[in-house]
Structure formats: structure tokens, C-alpha cells
Design a protein around this nucleic acid. Sequence first.
DNA 1: TTCCTGAAAC
DNA 2: GTTTCGGGAA
Length: 211
Amino acid sequence: MMPVMSLYERLKETYGHQNWWPADSPFEMMAGAILVQNTNWNNVGKALARLQPDLSPERIRAMTDEELEERIRPSGFFRMKAQRLRAFLEWFESHGDDVRALQQVETDVLREELLQVKGIGAETADSILLYALYRPVFVIDAYTHRIMNRIGYQFPKKYNQAQAFFEEALPKDEALYNDFHAQFVRHAKEHCKKKPVCEGCPLEPECEKQI
DNA sequence: TTCCTGAAAC
DNA sequence: GTTTCGGGAA
């Protein structure tokens, strides 16, 4: 079976560095992490564009529920996500609405706090830690499971175990975790889709096609 | 019709 | 373990 690092290298050779997360600021990244839950990024882009003129914690808090819901409507689950954004903003305010303040806090503490926020689960919490705060935390998602299972790894189903699998197999490297997860997303959208597109797949030699 | 960088409630 | 939340594009 292919070493985990070789897996990354193969994907990077194929797709190139992915340069994640696509956001202009840490705050936009964190908002995007909530909006993108079970939704394609194209629709999140529309929602962020509609928020853009008022994309700050204060301006969003000042909106009525109806206003906020209307802005983020294109991202789907808009009523739920409006409340999730508000819950996140409440937590952010407890740190002074200040990303620099967050950087003074231990990763494990931040992770536990984020998991207490209603609407933020393990994947969203870790995405924020990695892509907004540059902490070396490996993000696991549905794509990760799909790809790892298809190429024949005995891959843990539980989030924390799946995460440990990568963090124990790889150096504790934030930049590596950043691009590795991005490569998985790219590969899942390009080839390892729900209905696999195996022609030209860079992992073809390794894949057991146990779909 | 299907699928999308999930999480909470049931 | 299963259902719910949802618009947008293929």
C-alpha cells in the first residue's frame, strides 16, 4: 500500500499546489467554513458576495434574521446557517472579535471552544484552526473517507481516529495539512466522485476499485 | 434527479 | 442509525 506521503506527492504532481483557503481574510474564511457545510463552493461564493459589503462581525450582528438569511440564501440551509453564524459570532466576540487574540490561545483550547459552538462540528472546527489560524490540524471530510477507502486503506470511521491516522503518519506541518486536504477535495471533484471517473485517475495504479 | 468541502435532532 | 435543513447547477 502506498505511503501516505507518496499519496500526497502523487496528487500534488497531478493537480499542482491548491493554494487554499480561497478567502480574503481570516474572518471571511471562518464565515465560509460554516456556509460551505454540505454545500458546493460555487453557491457559497454567491452568499459571500452578497455579504461582502457588510462582511464584519459588527455589521452581521446588526442585521435582522430576515436580512442575514436573505444574504446567505444561495448557500442553502440558510435559516440554520444564519443561526450558526450568529453562534459563531458570539464566540468570536468572547475573544474581542480579534483574530490576533485567537492566536494567543492554545490549539486544543480553541478546538474545544469551537466544538461547543452550536453548528460547529469537528470538520468545521478543524478547518477554521487550519485555514484561518494556521494550526497544524489535519481536516477530515467525506471525501477523505471515500478516497482512502477506495484506494484500499483500512481507514477509521471515527473522526478523531481518522485524523490521528494522518497526523501520526505525517510530520506536524501546517502547510502540508493545508494542501493535502485541498488535494483530496480537488481529486474527489475531478475523479473520485460518488460515481467514479477512473479515466486518467492519478491513483489508478493503487486503486482497488472496490466501489 | 442527483450532488454538494456537515451538524444537530430525533 | 436515520432524518432534517435547501438553493443552485449539472
